[in-house]
Design a protein around this nucleic acid. Structure first.
Lengths: 162, 162
DNA sequence: CCTTGGATGCAATCGATTTGCATCCATAAA
DNA sequence: TTTATGGATGCAAATCGATTGCATCCAAGG
C-alpha cells in the first residue's frame, strides 16, 4: 500500500453487500425500489471513497435522473443509516455506502492537490472524546476528523513551505 | 490520556494584543488601515470563540460596512495569518483572531443544541499525523478536528439515546 | 385492476460566498 | 499640503451547493 494517488481498494470497503440486500432494507422501511434509487445504490456500491451528489449524478449514465432526486435519495439513505456523510471542508457533501452493521465511523487523508483519498483506519480521539464529555458535562459526544496533505504525485508541484 | 500538543501560547484566549499591534502588522504588509477593517478587528478582539461573517457584520454597530467587505477582509486577514478559519460542519465559516506567534491550531466542543462552544485544550497527537504522512508518502499533513455533543443545558431536551 | 402515499421532474428559491465595476481614500511621494 | 496611485469599499449581479413547492407518476399492497 504505497500508491495513495491511485485508486486502490481499502480493506474496510472491499466487500459490498449485494444490491438485493440493500433493496430489502429499503422495502423493510416502506421505501420504494425505483429505478433512480437502484442506480444510485449501484454507483455507491462501485465507489470505495466518498463521492459527491454531482459525481453520483454524473456516474448514473443511462439511468439518468434529476439531480434533485440524487440529493433527496442521499438524504433518505442517510436517514436510514445506509450511507454516511463526510465533510472534506470544501463545502461539498460526500457519501459512502455503509456495510451492514457498520456505523461508518472512520477518517480520511485527502490530498489538497488532486483530491486523492486514502482511508485512515482506527479512530484515535475516542478517549479524548470521553474525557472531554466528562469534563464539560456534555453528552452524546462525537467528532469529525479529516487529514489533509500533499500526496507524492502533487508534492513536487507545491510551493515553498516551513 | 493522549499527550496534548505544545503549541498553545494562550490556551484560553483571554488576553488579546492591542489594536495598534494589529494595525502595525497590516501596515507592514502594505495593507491600509481603513475604518471597516479596524472595526472588524475590534469585533474579533472582543470575541473568544469563532464567529461568522454575518455575526461580525451584525456586531459592527456604528462602524457598519458592506457584508462583502467583511468577507473580503476576513480573506485578507486569513491570508496574512491574523485569523484562523474554522469549520463546524454547518456550511458557515467561522473565524478567530490569532495571538502573535500562535498558529491557532486547536479544536472545539460544540453543542448541537444551542451552539455553545468550548475550547478544547488537548490536541490530537502530532506523531500520529506524521506516521500517517510517512505511511502514505504525504507531505505537509494537517488535520481538522471538531467535537460535537449536547451541553448540560440542552441534554434534558434531547430525544432518546443509544 | 385500483388505490395510495412515496418518488420524481422541473423550476423556483435559498443561503453563503464571490466578483465585476465604478468610486473612494489611505498612504507615500513630490 | 498637494498629488498620484493602488488598495479598499459599496452595490448589485452572479455563483454554487442544496432545498423545496407542486403537479404528475408509479411501485406496492390490496
Amino acid at each position: 500500500m504505497s500508491s495513495p494517488c491511485s485508486r486502490h481498494p481499502h480493506p474496510h470497503r472491499l466487500i459490498q453487500q449485494p444490491l438485493t440486500e440493500l433493496t430489502d432494507k429499503l422495502r423493510s422501511k416502506s421505501r420504494k425500489i425505483t429505478a433512480p434509487r437502484q442506480a444510485i445504490l449501484e454507483v455507491l456500491r462501485r465507489h470505495r471513497h466518498p463521492i459527491t451528489n454531482k459525481e453520483i449524478h454524473a456516474a448514473l449514465g443511462t439511468a439518468d435522473c434529476d439531480l434533485a432526486t440524487v440529493y433527496r435519495n442521499l438524504h433518505t439513505l442517510e436517514d436510514m443509516g445506509m450511507v454516511r456523510r463526510f465533510d472534506f471542508g470544501d463545502g461539498v457533501a460526500r457519501f459512502e455506502l455503509l456495510e451492514e452493521g457498520d456505523d461508518g465511523h472512520h477518517h480520511h487523508l485527502v490530498c489538497t492537490g488532486c483530491s486523492a483519498v486514502v482511508e485512515v483506519e482506527g479512530c484515535f480521539p475516542t478517549e479524548l472524546e470521553q474525557a472531554l464529555a466528562r469534563r464539560h458535562g456534555f453528552t452524546r459526544v462525537t467528532h469529525k476528523l479529516e487529514f489533509f496533505g500533499l500526496c507524492p504525485k502533487c508534492a513536487p508541484a507545491a510551493p515553498a513551505a516551513p
